[in-house]
Design a binder for these strands. Structure first.
Lengths: 129, 129
DNA sequence: ATGATATATGCGTCTATGCGCAACTACGCA
DNA sequence: TGCGTAGTTGCGCATAGACGCATATATCAT
């Protein structure tokens, strides 16, 4: 049973729910810095969340140069499929802002690829002195 | 968003998942003592869990004499409907034992009603001295 | 090689929550 | 009105997890 509670636990966090929803809506893989600018959450935070979600089997990642692209792990079982649909069914208004920010951020892509890091500097971890 | 994470959080526990699944499968309302004997979890524990699930909008309760019957709250939104279906999609083998215990326990009903309390005594809270 | 940049991670702290225990309320019956 | 029974709840402990900060790793450019 723990394998199922684990998935629920993983989604028991607003940021993670927003990440999954954003990826489901985007229909394409997104890199960490794009998620950071869209969600307006600190880089280290987003990184931790996507790592946890990948461990739980909800996301997959692909590394390309310095960037790591995340996308929903195509659900194999009925259980995960239905959970994905549930997240996709969260009403629009809860995700509107994130989507708008993502749209803006995606304009920085060139040739379909991310070529820059986090633009909203206040979301970066503190630089070592 | 917290209203959605709350539901996931509520289901992030094996006992709760088993309770919901048992109620979904049973197709009828069950009282606390029947859940206790089916799940083989302490009475105070089951009581706390169903209370939490009711607060989260997942269950509803009906009091009849000394007994309190719980059943799944018929989901109004698409989100909750899909979550219920996900829980119902957890493979059989994870719920087999609970269901067998429930079948046994339901034989104690008369006229469709529960007429006794917890039968597995080791699952009761300690009696005050 | 050196530095810059994208992402990940270890640590301490704070909060949330499940559990066991014990007491409590609510209801019914004699 | 007193007792037994079904269920709830408050308290304390222990654990788990999210966050902020700092730093580490990995890759690329010069």
């Amino acid at each position: 049973m723990e394998e199922y509670t684990q998935v629920f636990k993983t989604l028991s966090d607003p940021t993670r729910l927003r990440i999954l929803r954003l990826l489901l809506d985007a229909g394409k893989e997104l890199c960490v810095c794009e998620l950071v600018d869209s969600l307006e959450e600190p880089q280290y935070n987003v990184s931790k969340h996507v790592t946890a979600m990948r461990s739980a089997g909800l996301l997959k990642s692909r590394k390309e140069g310095r960037w790591v692209y995340y996308s929903p792990q195509s659900a194999d079982g009925e259980f995960l499929k239905l959970l994905s649909r549930a997240v996709a069914a969260i009403p629009e208004r809860h995700v509107k802002h994130d989507r708008a920010e993502l749209r803006k951020r995606l304009k920085l892509r060139e040739g379909g690829k991310c070529l820059t890091g986090v633009r909203k500097e206040h979301l970066l971890g503190k630089v070592s002195s």
